[in-house]
Simulated scan of single mutants.
Amino acid sequence: MRRVRPGGTTRGALTSVAAGDTYEEPRDLPRLWHVTLSVAGPGVPLTELRRSLEQLAHDHPFLLTSRYAGDHAEIRYWEEARDLHDAAAVALRLWGEHRLSAGLPPWEIVGLEVIDRETYHQRVAEGYGPPPAAPVGVHPF
C-alpha cells in the first residue's frame, strides 16, 4: 500500500483526507434509469415476433415488459448507468445488437424515453406516465 502525504491527494483508488475533512460519495456512481424503447417497421408474423421478444428478454435480464403488434413494439426496462447519456446510448444499441441473436425484425427505433428512478415513481404516484410494468413479460398490445 502506498503512503499518501497529508493534505488530501489522490492516487488511483486510494484517497487521503486531512483530519476533520468529511468523505463525500463520488457523484458518478451508477443510477437506475427507466427506459422505454419503441420500434416499428414492416409487418411480421406475431408468433415469430413474440418468440424474438422472449429471446431478447432472456438475453437482457433487466427487461421488464414488451408489448407488440405486427408492425411495432415497445420495450420497457431498467438500466444501470452513470448518467442519462450512458443509459440512452445503451438503449439505442439494444435493438441492433440483439437483432441477429434474438431474431428481431429489421425495424427502426422510432421513440426513446429515459427517465431517472425518482421521476418514474413520481409520475406513477401522481397517476400519469407509464404505469408499473405489470404483468412482467411479453404481451400483445
Rank of each mutant, 00 (worst) to 15 (best):
D59W: 10
G111K: 07
E113I: 11
P106F: 07
Y68P: 04
T36K: 02
A125I: 00
A81I: 03
G70K: 10
S52M: 01
P131A: 04
A69P: 09
G103T: 06
S16F: 06
P132Q: 01
R2D: 11
A73P: 01
R2T: 15
P132L: 13
R99L: 06
S16W: 11
V17S: 08
R11I: 15
P42H: 01
G12R: 04
V4R: 10
P132G: 07
R123T: 08
G103V: 00
D59I: 02
E118S: 12
Y128M: 05
S52T: 08
G12Y: 12
L104C: 07
E126V: 05
T47W: 10
A134Q: 13
S38W: 14
G96M: 03
S38C: 14
G41P: 04
R11Q: 14
E24S: 13
F141Q: 10
E25V: 15
E126M: 13
W33F: 00
Y128F: 13
G129P: 05
R82H: 07
Y120N: 00
I115V: 15
Y77F: 12
D59G: 01
Y77Q: 01
A125H: 00
A19E: 11
H121K: 05
A19W: 13
L94V: 02
G41Y: 08
E25M: 13
P45S: 02
D21M: 12
L92V: 01
E108M: 12
R82P: 08
D71H: 13
D116M: 00
R99K: 00
S52K: 08
A133V: 06
P105I: 09
